[in-house]
Simulated scan of single mutants.
Amino acid sequence: MAPTSDLNVFMERIVKCNMITVKKIIAVNLNEKEPQQVYSGGNNQSSRATVHEVDYKKLGTVPENIRLVLQGCSLMAYLVNKAVSTGYLSHGERLSVLYVFGHMGEDGREFVHTVMSFTLNYQYFTTDKFIKKLLSRPISCVKLREQYKSVTAEYGCNCMFKRTKNCYPSPVLHAIKKNSEESSDITLPVSRHVSEEKKQAVYQELNIHAQVQELAEKIVEFRRQKKGIDKSIEKIEKELHVIFDNARIDCMEVSMGMLVRRKKGENYEWVIEI
C-alpha cells in the first residue's frame, strides 16, 4: 500500500470502536461462547444448545415472511443473533444471510441491510453491491450444513421439508409453504432449467398447508353466514304464517309467481310457483 500523503484523512477513514465492541470482536475470534440454554434429550440422547430467541425489538419491524424463516431455521436465527450481539460476521456468514434473505423480495433485501448494520464495518453501498450481484437461486440447506458443521451440530439443523419434485430444501421454504397466495417476491428453490409451468406445480405442492387452511377458514365463514341467513328466513316465514293465517289462505300471487304454503309432515314449506 502506498504511503498516505494526508495523515488526517487517513485517520478519519479508520473505523472507530468503543472498548465493549473490541472485546466482543476478540471474544468471537477466540471462539469464546456465551452461556447457552440446553435441554436434556433423555438418557440416550445428547444435550443440544438452544438458539436464543431473536431480539425483534433491536431489529425493528420484521415482516412476517422474515419471521417465519427465523423461527423455522435455527442457523439463520443464530447468524442474526450473532450480528446483533457481537457486531461481527465473517464474510462467509454475511453471504449466507444474503443468499437466504436476499431472495425474499424487497423486505428481504432491507432485512439484509438491517442485519449488516449491526456489524462494525457496515457500509450501505458495499452491501447493496453484493445484493445486486446476488446469485439466481437461494442457497440450499445441504450447502449450509456443510459450511456450518459445528454450528448445526450444536444447535440442530433438521427442518422437515416435504420432498417435492424439482425443488431442493432451502430456508426460504419456511415462508413459501405458509403463504396462502403465490409470492413472486420469494425465489423458489428450483433448478434454473425448470419451466414456469413446473414452478407453479412446485409452489402448489409446497403450499398445500396454506391452501387447506384458507379453504377451512372459508367453510367456517360460510357456515357462520348460513346460520345467520337461516335465522332470517325463519323469522320471515313466521311473519308470513301470521299473515296467511289471518287471511285464511295458503297461497297468494306475488311478482315472482304464486307463493304457496304447503304442509310437509309436521311443518310447512314455502314455494314460489312460476
Score class of each variant (00 low, 15 high):
Ser117Trp: 01
Val271Thr: 11
Thr50Asp: 10
Tyr88Ile: 09
Glu110Leu: 01
Met76Leu: 13
Tyr203Lys: 10
Lys263Pro: 02
Lys177Ser: 05
Leu30His: 07
His174Met: 00
Tyr39Gln: 12
Ala83Ile: 00
Ile208Trp: 08
Asn246Phe: 06
Val28Leu: 07
Val80Lys: 03
Val220Asp: 13
Glu12Val: 04
Ser232Ala: 15
Leu70Tyr: 04
Ser117Gly: 03
Ser136Gly: 11
Glu221Ser: 08
Pro189Thr: 02
Val38Trp: 13
Ser90Gly: 11
Val194Cys: 03
Val220Leu: 09
Thr187His: 01
Tyr88Arg: 07
Gln36Pro: 02
Asn207Arg: 11
Arg248Ala: 10
Asn44Ile: 01
Arg145Val: 06
Asn246Thr: 12
Arg109Thr: 01
Gln147Val: 03
Met1Phe: 05
Arg248Glu: 13
Asn158His: 10
Glu214Cys: 11
Val22Lys: 15
Gly265Asp: 15
Ile14Phe: 05
Glu12Arg: 15
His91Lys: 15
Ala49Ile: 09
Met256Asp: 15
Leu95Ile: 15
Lys177Trp: 01
Val51Met: 01
Pro189Gly: 10
Val112Gly: 00
Gly228Pro: 00
Glu182Tyr: 14
Arg248Gly: 07
Ile14His: 04
Ser255Gly: 05
Glu266Ser: 09
Val172Asn: 07
Val97Glu: 03
Leu240Ile: 11
Ser191Tyr: 03
Ser195Pro: 03
Gly87Trp: 00
Lys23Tyr: 08
Cys17Trp: 03
Asn43Cys: 04
His103Met: 03
Arg261Ile: 00
Ser5Met: 11
Pro169Leu: 09
Leu95Arg: 14
Leu259Met: 04
Tyr203His: 12
Gln45Val: 13
Lys264Arg: 06
Val84Glu: 02
Lys133Phe: 03
Lys57Arg: 14
Gln37Cys: 12
Pro3Ile: 03
Glu93Trp: 02
Tyr268Thr: 01
Gln200Asp: 15
Asp230Thr: 06
Ile219Asp: 06
Ile249Leu: 05
Gln71His: 12
Leu30Lys: 07
Asn31Tyr: 02
Met19His: 14
Glu106Lys: 12
Asn179Pro: 04
Ile243Thr: 05
Leu134Ser: 02
Leu135Trp: 07
Ala77Asn: 00
Glu110Gly: 02
Thr50Gln: 15
Ser47Phe: 08
Ala83Thr: 02
Ile139Met: 10
Leu98Asn: 08
Ile131Lys: 07
Glu239His: 13
Lys162Asp: 12
Lys129Asn: 11
Ser136His: 02
Leu95Tyr: 10
Pro3Arg: 04
Ala175Cys: 02
Asp250Tyr: 04
Lys178His: 11
Pro189Arg: 00
Thr119Asp: 04
Ser140Gly: 06
Gln123Thr: 06
Tyr78Asp: 09
Glu32Trp: 06
Arg137Phe: 00
Glu269Tyr: 05
Pro138Thr: 08
Gly72Gln: 02
Glu64Ala: 11
Leu215Ser: 07
Leu120Val: 13
Gly42Ala: 06
Gln45Thr: 14
Met256Tyr: 08
Asn29Ala: 07
Val151Glu: 11
Ser255Tyr: 08
Glu237Met: 00
Gly228Cys: 05
Gln200Thr: 10
Val80Met: 00
Arg224Met: 11
Asp250Ala: 04
Lys231Thr: 08
Arg94Ile: 03
Cys17Leu: 14
Gln37Leu: 14
Val220Gly: 00
Asn8Ala: 10
Phe10Cys: 08
Ala153Cys: 01
Glu266Ile: 08
Met258Asp: 05
Thr61Gln: 08
Lys57Thr: 12
Ala153Pro: 06
Gln37Lys: 15
Lys33Tyr: 02
